[in-house]
Computed example of a mutant assay.
Amino acid sequence: MTSCLSVNPTRPAVPAESECDAMNANLLSGAGLDIGGTKIAAARFDKGCIVARARAETIGQADINSQLDSMAALLQEVGHVSGTPVGAALTGRVTRNGDWMAVNRSTLSNLTGSNLKTLASDRFSGPVTLVNDAAAAALGEYRFGAGIGSNSMAYITVSTGVGGGLVLNGKLLQSDDGLAGHVGFSTALKGDQLCGSGRVGTIESLASGRAIARYGSNLAGRDVAAPEVFALWQQGTPWATSVVEQSARSIAELCANLRTILGLDRIVIGGSVGLATGYLECVSHILLNEEPELFNVDLQPAELGQDSPLFGALQFAVDQQ
């Protein structure tokens, strides 16, 4: 089993917020929302540039109406103009009909499958298009970021949880029930913990930011958060190294599995954990050294940083018009 301790991060840091002049997104105007497990972000676009931003913490226990209140407040803050497109990227399942529900109920505990598309369109006095957040990020990266030039790619976000989106032969994969792309709920060889999805031994239960904090706290004998675990890993602390490498090994396993099943030519890694200094290099090192060459795949960091879902959500909305 290989170790990542000797791997030096060589890639430049990915910006948390993308620069509009680097994007080929000249036709994007409107608003994007990104509702994740820990934060809600909003951005107003004008001719491909993000011209205003706002963010707030996600309230995991909030019901659908309270979630709408948070979205509305952020759209107002960024100066959204009623009637212009709104694309919302949402953690959890989003059905083709616009129902929104959690898969991992430890993240969003009070959603009841209400039709958010109808409620949001009424609330914001115009059409609102919904898509899963990782699927939106996949589309954003495919059109404007690290996926340019790819035919079939996956986007994997490693953050509070682990999610994914798939673009196959140039088309975003979706399913009627909104489950397609939830790669974090597939299982891993080393997994044995109950996941918030109800499954046992998932990638998310080994690799996510919450999993890193949980395993780290158990080994440290005190409460530690994922950023502290990463800092100690970079200092060579043995227990932190085992926790981070467990996460990276699980993501490398997932990459090899997706390559096997779908024949992907590229996988883009994003999220606060996925873009942490040295993490992608660790995943790549493990994939290269522990998997046969046939199952290796081109790994790239998300070029749009934390903005991938915002670009993708608005692009998805424009595509639906």
Rank of each mutant, 00 (worst) to 15 (best):
183 V>H: 09
319 D>Y: 09
43 A>I: 06
312 G>R: 00
107 T>C: 13
57 E>R: 15
48 G>E: 09
45 F>W: 10
77 E>R: 15
68 L>F: 04
297 V>H: 09
70 S>V: 02
90 L>E: 05
3 S>Y: 02
140 G>R: 00
160 T>W: 08
153 M>W: 01
227 P>R: 06
258 L>D: 08
89 A>W: 00
293 E>P: 00
9 P>D: 10
145 G>F: 01
195 C>N: 08
133 D>M: 02
283 V>R: 01
175 S>N: 09
216 G>Y: 06
309 P>A: 10
34 D>N: 02
119 L>R: 13
89 A>D: 01
268 V>K: 05
13 A>T: 14
255 C>A: 15
106 S>K: 12
174 Q>K: 14
67 Q>T: 15
248 A>L: 07
57 E>H: 13
232 L>M: 14
245 E>C: 02
185 F>C: 02
184 G>K: 07
128 V>I: 11
300 Q>L: 14
310 L>M: 04
9 P>M: 04
148 I>H: 04
318 V>G: 00
224 V>T: 11
43 A>C: 08
296 N>M: 04
161 G>P: 01
310 L>T: 01
36 G>V: 07
305 G>P: 04
214 R>L: 12
211 A>P: 10
216 G>W: 03
78 V>D: 03
202 T>G: 03
250 S>D: 05
199 R>Q: 14
236 G>V: 13
136 A>M: 00
49 C>F: 06
109 S>E: 09
42 A>M: 08
204 E>A: 11
274 G>C: 12
206 L>I: 13
168 L>A: 10
22 A>T: 13
136 A>E: 00
106 S>G: 10
179 L>S: 14
11 R>A: 15
104 N>Y: 10
236 G>M: 10
26 N>M: 02
85 P>V: 10
189 L>Q: 11
149 G>R: 09
32 G>S: 03
253 E>W: 05
155 Y>N: 06
274 G>E: 07
84 T>Q: 14
160 T>C: 07
222 R>E: 15
138 A>S: 10
281 E>P: 03
112 T>Q: 14
68 L>M: 14
37 G>F: 11
4 C>R: 08
18 S>M: 10
24 N>K: 12
246 Q>G: 13
86 V>I: 15
115 N>P: 02
306 Q>P: 00
290 E>G: 08
49 C>A: 14
217 S>H: 03
246 Q>W: 00
303 E>I: 00
318 V>F: 11
150 S>W: 08
197 S>I: 09
